[in-house]
């Protein structure tokens, strides 16, 4: 069954909780509500043979509500049948950043979910061992969030690890130390496209994010 028919079957199975399927560049993706993620994964695996979990990623739409998005890639391996790939996305809000774990369906989701928790801070209900995987136990921040600066924040975990701020001045990311923009100045992001001095990070990114999302939402035909 090609992907759009699978999406239709998913919509029939969970009426009202599955969004419209979208296609771009030969890939189909669909939004689902986060309550039915585990059931949807089980339905896809058992009834439609999407038995291969390729990846679980998370995206931080800083400035939008709901803030996070968890992206699952499922695939049916093409042994004797047609290969089908489907992307299932679910939005997670900042206030209740939890999603059901799909470990009962795919054992391989274990490490993916731990990494999403480590990098983004989204907790997975029912995960047997939800602890950090790439950073050390006790690291207090979630690095891939947009309000976490690239150079890091100093932290100390005696006996285990420590972290310092990486020097960004003169580096490839930002122009040399600039005073924070005053009211009336063009924001740093327009003068130097990729500059975001850490102190003004929240302000710049939030505005930029709001501006970009308006455009992108219009283009993608979604309601905000």
């Amino acid at each position: 069954m090609p992907a759009h028919e699978i999406i239709a079957a998913l919509q029939r199975q969970f009426p009202g909780q599955v969004g419209q399927g979208r296609e771009s560049r030969d890939e189909w993706s669909v939004d689902v509500d986060r309550e039915i993620v585990r059931d949807a994964a089980a339905f896809l695996k058992n009834d439609h043979g999407l038995n291969f979990l390729v990846d679980i990623s998370s995206v931080d739409h800083f400035g939008e509500e709901p803030r996070y998005e968890v992206v699952y890639e499922f695939r049916r391996l093409s042994e004797g049948t047609d290969e089908v790939e489907l992307r299932v996305k679910t939005k997670v809000s900042e206030d209740d950043a939890t999603v059901d774990s799909i470990i009962p369906v795919f054992q391989g989701a274990d490490w993916h979910e731990r990494e999403v928790f480590d990098m983004m801070g989204i907790k997975f209900n029912g995960h047997p061992d939800l602890r950090r995987i790439l950073m050390w136990e006790g690291y207090p921040y979630y690095p891939l969030r947009k309000d976490f600066p690239l150079e890091g924040i100093p932290s100390e975990m005696p006996g285990e690890a420590f972290s310092l701020i990486a020097p960004m001045e003169g580096g490839p990311f930002v122009s040399p130390a600039m005073p924070p923009p005053k009211v009336g100045d063009a924001p740093a992001t327009t003068r130097e496209p990729r500059a975001h001095p850490a102190s003004s990070l929240r302000v710049d990114l939030k505005e930029q994010a709001a501006g970009l999302h308006k455009d992108s939402n219009q283009r993608m035909g979604q309601s905000a």
């Binding site: 050390w136 690239l150 990311f173 990729r194």
Partner: peptide
């Protein structure tokens, strides 16, 4: 794991 975690994905958002 994680002893070689260098932050590639975060770096990618700046390059």
């Amino acid at each position: 794991i994680g002893y070689l975690h260098r932050g590639d994905e975060k770096i990618a958002e700046n390059m």
